[in-house]
Computed example of a mutant assay.
Amino acid sequence: MRADAKRNYSHLLSVARGVVAEHGVDASMRDIARRADVGLATLLRHFPTREALFDALVRTNLDALTQRAGELEASTAPGEALLSWFREWVVFTQSYRGVVALMAAAHTNPDSALYASCAAVHSASARLLLRAQAEGTARNDMNGDDLFGLMSALGWLVDLPSFAPRADHLFHIVASAILTNRPGNGVKKATR
């Protein structure tokens, strides 16, 4: 890529980050182009679809999460590795309002620009889950798809303003449903 094309690309991403921070994934491509002081055709030449733009925006974060999963696999007890990684993923989802819905749709669609990044995150979470299951600290009746679904559900839920203040509490509830030896798993039955 030529130097001026790299500058344009970086400028478009920078402007897009700001617009997405304000409006979430429903940010208008036209608005991004206008704020970047370029024509819509220029924006679309760099990012032909909304998914391509979001892939460029979140790929670094998703690559870092995938790398972090590898680090946790090598250095942390399996249950704690899964829990730490899950928490980091939830924090990531809160940085781009609406990104969870895009990821949930893209992770099974090989034609999506987000597919490769989502597949890597899905694979990383599944590896961490399998490791925790082998240790006996995670439920054996779930698989990587179930975990990705729970992660997506929690990410979507805490994206809603009415649930955002309860994000930490909801995280602990979901974590206690995944890991077998967490406080709160031994819920007492009601007596009659």
Rank of each mutant, 00 (worst) to 15 (best):
R2A: 12
D4P: 01
Y9D: 10
L13Q: 04
S14K: 08
V19A: 04
A21N: 06
H23N: 12
A27L: 00
D31N: 01
R34C: 03
R34V: 11
A41V: 11
L44K: 15
F47K: 09
A52I: 03
A52R: 11
L57T: 02
L62D: 10
D63G: 06
E71I: 12
L72P: 00
A74E: 14
S75Q: 13
P78L: 02
G79K: 07
L82K: 07
V90D: 05
S95N: 04
Y96V: 15
L102Y: 03
M103C: 12
A105V: 07
A106M: 11
C118E: 03
A120S: 14
S123K: 14
S125A: 15
Q133H: 07
G136L: 00
T137S: 15
N140M: 10
N140P: 11
D141Y: 05
M142P: 07
G144W: 06
G144V: 06
G144N: 08
L147F: 06
F148H: 08
S152R: 08
V158A: 04
D159I: 01
L160M: 13
R166Y: 14
L170I: 09
F171C: 04
A175W: 10
S176C: 14
S176N: 15
S176G: 11
L179I: 13
N181T: 15
R182M: 15
P183L: 13
V187E: 09
A190I: 08
